[in-house]
Computed example of a mutant assay.
Amino acid sequence: MPLLVIFAGLFILVAGLEKAVITPDIIAWVGNWRLDHVGVLTSLTAVLSNIVSNVPAVLVLEPIVAHLADPERALLVIAIASTLAGPLSHRLRAAPTVVKPAVKSFLLTQRTVVKSNGCAGAQ
Rank of each mutant, 00 (worst) to 15 (best):
V98A: 14
V60Y: 09
G9K: 09
L84K: 00
A122R: 02
L61S: 00
W29P: 00
R93G: 14
L13W: 13
T42Y: 12
W33H: 01
L107Y: 10
W33F: 04
V103A: 14
A120V: 13
V113A: 14
E62K: 11
L61H: 01
V47G: 13
A8T: 03
A122K: 04
G9T: 08
E62G: 02
A46T: 12
E62R: 08
V113W: 15
V113M: 14
K104M: 11
H90V: 13
I64Y: 02
I12T: 03
I80E: 08
G118M: 03
L68Q: 06
C119Q: 11
A81D: 05
L108V: 04
S89R: 06
I80G: 05
V30S: 08
A69M: 07
P24H: 07
P71M: 04
P24D: 05
P2F: 13
A15Q: 03
L107R: 15
I78S: 03
E72Y: 14
A15V: 02
T83M: 12
G16V: 06
G9L: 09
V38C: 14
A8E: 02
P101E: 10
L68E: 06
A28Y: 12
L35N: 04
F106C: 12
T45N: 06
P63A: 08
L75N: 15
G121F: 09
L48P: 02
I26L: 15
L92V: 02
R91W: 12
D36S: 10
P71G: 02
P24F: 08
I51E: 03
V99T: 00
L61Y: 04
T97H: 08
L4H: 07
L44M: 15
V103M: 13
V77L: 04
P71R: 02
L48E: 01
L92H: 07
R34Y: 10
W29Y: 09
G9F: 08
R93M: 14
N50M: 04
H37M: 10
P101C: 05
A57C: 11
V99F: 10
L108C: 03
G31R: 03
L92R: 06
G39H: 06
P71N: 04
A8D: 05
V65E: 06
V38M: 14
D25S: 09
S105M: 12
P63Y: 08
L4K: 09
V58I: 14
K100H: 10
R91H: 09
L4I: 09
R111A: 14
V30P: 04
A8R: 02
L88V: 07
S116V: 13
A94K: 00
P63Q: 05
N117T: 06
P2H: 13
P87Y: 15
H67G: 01
K100V: 11
N54T: 00
Q123S: 07
V30W: 12
K115L: 09
A57R: 07
A8P: 01
T97N: 06
V21C: 08
V98D: 05
V113G: 08
